[in-house]
Simulated scan of single mutants.
Amino acid sequence: MCQRNEALTERLRASEAEQTMLLDAITALVSFISADERYGRVNKAHEERVRAFAGDARTPVGGIGQPPTDLGTTRWRR
C-alpha cells in the first residue's frame, strides 16, 4: 500500500510540474481564483505583473492567497 501511495504521489507531482510548465509558457496573464475569491494559482507572466505593480518583492508569488481587490485589480467582478 505504501508503494502505491508513493507512486501516486510521484505521478501527481509530475502532473503538477507539467501543468506549471505549460501555464508559464503562456505569455498572457493566467490566474485561478477560488470560490472564496482569492488567487489560487497564477502563471509566470501574472506573477511578474503583480510584483511590478506592487513594487515590492515581498508580495506573495503572484498574489496567491490574496483577493484580486487587494492587488489593485479594480476591474474584478464576480
Rank of each mutant, 00 (worst) to 15 (best):
residue 16 E to W: 00
residue 69 T to E: 14
residue 19 Q to S: 13
residue 2 C to G: 09
residue 34 S to C: 06
residue 5 N to D: 09
residue 16 E to N: 00
residue 62 G to Q: 01
residue 58 R to G: 02
residue 46 H to S: 11
residue 8 L to T: 00
residue 16 E to K: 05
residue 12 L to G: 00
residue 29 L to A: 11
residue 58 R to T: 14
residue 30 V to W: 04
residue 50 V to Y: 06
residue 41 R to K: 12
residue 1 M to E: 07
residue 48 E to D: 15
residue 75 R to Q: 13
residue 21 M to Q: 08
residue 74 T to K: 15
residue 46 H to L: 06
residue 24 D to P: 03
residue 57 A to W: 05
residue 1 M to S: 14
residue 78 R to Y: 06
residue 13 R to A: 12
residue 24 D to G: 02
residue 23 L to Q: 12
residue 44 K to T: 05
residue 30 V to S: 03
residue 41 R to F: 01
residue 17 A to Q: 13
residue 38 R to Q: 00
residue 64 I to D: 04
residue 46 H to T: 13
residue 67 P to G: 14
residue 12 L to E: 01
residue 33 I to T: 11
residue 28 A to K: 01
residue 8 L to C: 06
residue 64 I to P: 04
residue 75 R to Y: 09
residue 66 Q to S: 13
residue 5 N to S: 09
residue 46 H to M: 12
residue 57 A to E: 15
residue 75 R to M: 07
residue 30 V to G: 02
residue 35 A to F: 07
residue 33 I to V: 15
residue 31 S to D: 05
residue 17 A to R: 09
residue 52 A to T: 15
residue 50 V to H: 06
residue 47 E to H: 10
residue 27 T to W: 07
residue 41 R to V: 09
residue 66 Q to Y: 09
residue 60 P to Y: 06
residue 21 M to Y: 04
residue 30 V to H: 04
residue 55 G to C: 02
residue 69 T to F: 14
residue 24 D to C: 09
residue 21 M to L: 10
residue 45 A to R: 05
residue 41 R to H: 08
residue 50 V to F: 04
residue 50 V to Q: 05
residue 37 E to I: 14
residue 75 R to D: 14
residue 22 L to A: 11
residue 51 R to I: 09
residue 25 A to I: 00
residue 40 G to K: 03
residue 36 D to G: 09
